[in-house]
Amino acid sequence: MIEILGLPAASTFADDIDRVFTIIFVAVGFWFLLAEGVFFWLIFRFKKKDGVKAQYITGELKSEKRWITVPHNIILLFDIVIVVAAVQVWYDVKQDLPEEPDKQVVRVIAQQWAWTFVHPGPDGKLDTPDDIAKVNEMHVQADRLHHFQLESKDVIHSFSVPVFRLKQDVIPGRVITGWFTPTKTGTYDIQCTEICGVGHALMPAKIVIQTAAEHAEWVAKNSSVAVASAALR
């Protein structure tokens, strides 16, 4: 449903989240139309007519209360379906942290008002001299599991990648780990979605998703620079 609004789905769980959205849309759309339909019909049907007195209905009889209790129970049923759908996706995205041998770990550091992305160099490990730190530019590889580690230097920020349907607040004093696996290549927005001061609107970053070969090339090109500058320091 969200893709038709012009936002591609570019992670493994984006489609799942879109599906939850659609399920809820259909479920509540049904109730909404039903309730509004009955509501407007009653208004037109029971408009005051001369000489016609309103009926005296207490709503306390069992036969009358049925009109409330039956919808009540059906809504409960709908709620259960929605909870199950939502919690399944939630478990996959937030509670579970999949592990794969060739996973890539990227450190994301938020501050007022920029993002720093620390990518591992050719050795595939963070905190080594060949790390590639980029400001407002995150480079990832399609079809490969990535873990991100969110850190904040000052206030609360929120790391949001709309094409992944992913969002996670960044809390100062904590390292929050999450995951994604991109499925499409391209360059997309990263947004800060928690108000973080004057420059909140000036914190756009880009996520660049490339194929394995392109990404390896980018790593090779940038890590030599990183190593050289580390040596100079």
Partner: peptide, 17 residues
Amino acid sequence: VTGIFLGASGADIYLHD
């Protein structure tokens, strides 16, 4: 009814804020 989208944790990951 739109509150249901936001109360459902799975959809809220995307819709939050």
